[in-house]
Amino acid sequence: MEDAVTETRTRSAGPPAGAVESAAKVGGPWRPTQPVNVGLPLLGLVIAMAFWWLVTTGLGLVHPAALPPPLAVAESFVDARGVLIPALGITTVMTVQGFLLSAVAGVLIGIALAASRHLERMFAPLLVAVNAVPKIALGPLLVVSFGWGTKPILIMVFLLCFFPIVLSTVTGLTTTPADLAELARSLHASWWQSFRKVRFPAALPQVFVGLKVAMPLAAIGAVIGEFYSDRPGLGYQILQYNGVGETATAWAAIVLIAVMSIGLYSVLSLVERLALPWVRATTSAR
């Protein structure tokens, strides 16, 4: 039975024969970087910058006090780089720590809800209710409850991230292909054998969908948490510079948050490619 269940896992989540080679052909994790993969993002950046310049300088549709031109933001970044670069490091650390905490807790909660229909019916409405609460309204309350420092920031990141991770984990674990689930039952596999060799490997693509949705939310949560914290991250700097009328520097901090989010999302996508090399080989490509 052990060998048959192992074969079941291979059919559901592991790479079939030749899948690694096929993955390399259709876009596996180790394929060489193609010019289009670099050129298209750069083209998108150029278009975005041109649009930014057009609405601020070319057509003057937005007042510089609300949205400074790109050149002014770049100059402000150069002038304040001694403050903004360390702030970027602080926000990145808070984002990654909160995301990892949310990932571990979200996957475990999702496994518990998927394992018991009674638990799902009992706690799913509460999770929806917690997710619906405006998180920015909780900022002052978190400071009062947990004091200054990193705890309010990590809790804010957790509150923003955990729901999509839980939802994707539950969805993945409850949508195991029927033929594979039936095969595991016919082999009298235990719950743990079925979970370890069939259900969880098959759910990993869905789990990564939730993780990739949660990653940008982690950056948002870290910035919101820093609004009400004494940690001098990018969120703290945005408030400080905006408060003294240096909106260009505040926008430079916002741009750094966007760059940080893109970098972390790219790292997570790379982890997905390395952990699940068979997915692109066994699914239809665009």
Results as ranks from 00 to 15, higher is better:
W53L: 08
A189H: 12
L270W: 13
L61W: 15
V166P: 10
M215Q: 07
L264H: 02
P125T: 00
P29G: 00
L43C: 01
F162K: 00
A281Q: 08
S76G: 06
A19R: 09
P15Q: 01
Q206Y: 11
Q240P: 03
A132S: 15
K197A: 11
V130H: 09
P177G: 01
P125C: 00
R81P: 04
L43H: 00
G39T: 12
C161G: 02
L276V: 04
T91D: 00
T249L: 07
G106N: 11
H63R: 14
T150I: 10
T247V: 14
V93D: 01
L167D: 09
A23K: 01
P68S: 10
T282N: 08
G221C: 10
A184D: 04
G221I: 07
S261T: 15
S261D: 08
F146M: 08
F51C: 13
I220H: 07
R196Q: 04
V259W: 12
A258W: 03
G44E: 11
M260T: 07
V26R: 09
A17Y: 10
G110I: 03
R185G: 05
A129R: 01
V244G: 04
T171N: 13
L138M: 14
L40F: 14
E2H: 06
A87P: 14
A129T: 02
K151F: 13
V20T: 10
A184F: 05
V104L: 13
W251R: 03
D230I: 04
F51Q: 03
I254S: 12
V130G: 08
K25N: 08
L100F: 15
L268C: 06
T176I: 15
G221E: 06
N242W: 11
E226H: 04
E2G: 08
R185D: 11
T175N: 15
W251V: 00
M156R: 14
S102G: 11
M1E: 14
T283R: 10
F146I: 06
P41L: 02
V170A: 01
I85T: 13
L88T: 15
L113Q: 01
L101T: 09
F51G: 13
G149N: 03
L127M: 12
R9Y: 05
G110P: 14
L67C: 09
Y265R: 05
V213L: 12
L126T: 11
P69L: 00
T6R: 14
Q34P: 00
L61C: 10
L211I: 07
R11L: 15
R273A: 13
P16L: 09
A132M: 13
Q193V: 05
N131L: 11
A252Q: 03
A181W: 06
P125K: 02
F208V: 03
L101P: 10
V223N: 00
V78H: 04
A202Y: 13
L119K: 05
G263H: 04
F208Q: 00
A48V: 15
R11A: 15
Q237Y: 13
G243K: 09
V166R: 02
T176V: 15
P140A: 01
G98T: 02
V223R: 01
L142A: 02
L276T: 05
S261M: 13
V5W: 09
L113P: 03
I254W: 08
Y241F: 15
M49V: 13
P152Q: 01
A258F: 06
P164A: 00
I224G: 05
I165L: 10
L142V: 02
